[in-house]
Design a protein around this nucleic acid. Structure first.
Lengths: 139, 139
DNA sequence: AGTACAATAATACAATGATACAATTATGAA
DNA sequence: TTCATAATTGTATCATTGTATTATTGTACT
């Protein structure tokens, strides 16, 4: 049951992180975890922008930077695609960058809600226990 | 017949109350009495400043403080809007639910990337240090 | 006067939006 | 087919909007 790609992206207009960086972060992560595969076509800058209710230049900026990073290939008049053969070490680097981005966002948003470092850390430990219990059975 | 927003604001340059505080007070009041509704867009800092004959930094200062108070949402390059759900003081219960959701999402996405509990926990601790240094948490 | 601080102003910058353009693809008539 | 034309796609440029940093102004206090 494949969601529309745009529905898998969560943009927070109130975040202190710019929209174009939020997009980059999440697309990178989907590539790293295999949700997006080499050769997959991404939505056009205009259609994705419309569904996310942002300006298409903002999407274009994200695509351009991802292109420069070598993870996607944007082609004028054709569209944008996940790079066919990512450099061998790119995938592992993407994984680590994605983890860093996730941790960074968690801390940033939690701090924005006014929580202390202790509370942020403790809640994570709680969640790690909860979700680990669930996963150990099924695996 | 709606007046221009700027015409509903009375700025007294001779008041002992600073301009930016006068603005904050009056905008807050208009939100409280329903004149300004959630989702409404406020004038740009420059246009409002021009009509009020004050410097746009002064308006920006008012907007920033209202943003920090959670009353409005300022978005660079887009504009400023009355916060959708303005809970005067976010209830403790809601805050904790939000933190839980953030932590849960972090763990879930990190696991999806294939990281272990140790790696997930360690990366968070790293980020806590990094972001705490910048923010000088003690105060 | 001199100092210290808050309020305001000036300037440069970053993120997003609007518009026009170029490259490619799709369509259809000859 | 082949060519012309329209539609679609990304690109380039500049305008608009809020942000950050610094300078200036004004006020209160010694």
């Amino acid at each position: 049951m494949n969601k529309r790609f745009s529905e898998t992206l969560q943009i927070d207009l109130r975040s202190d992180l710019p929209i174009y960086l939020q997009l980059i972060e999440q697309i990178k992560r989907q590539i790293a975890d295999g949700t997006l595969k080499p050769g997959d076509q991404l939505p056009t800058v205009r259609s994705l922008a419309e569904e996310l209710r942002v300006n298409f230049n903002t999407v274009a900026r994200s695509y351009r930077m991802l292109d420069e990073a070598g993870v996607i290939s944007t082609q004028q008049g054709r569209g944008t695609y996940i790079t066919e053969k990512p450099p061998p070490e790119l995938s592992d680097r993407l994984r680590r960058e994605s983890l860093m981005a996730l941790a960074s966002r968690y801390v940033r948003e939690a701090r924005r809600l006014g929580f202390s470092s202790d509370e942020i850390r403790q809640k994570l430990l709680d969640q790690l226990e909860v979700q680990t219990e669930l996963n150990n059975e099924g695996e």
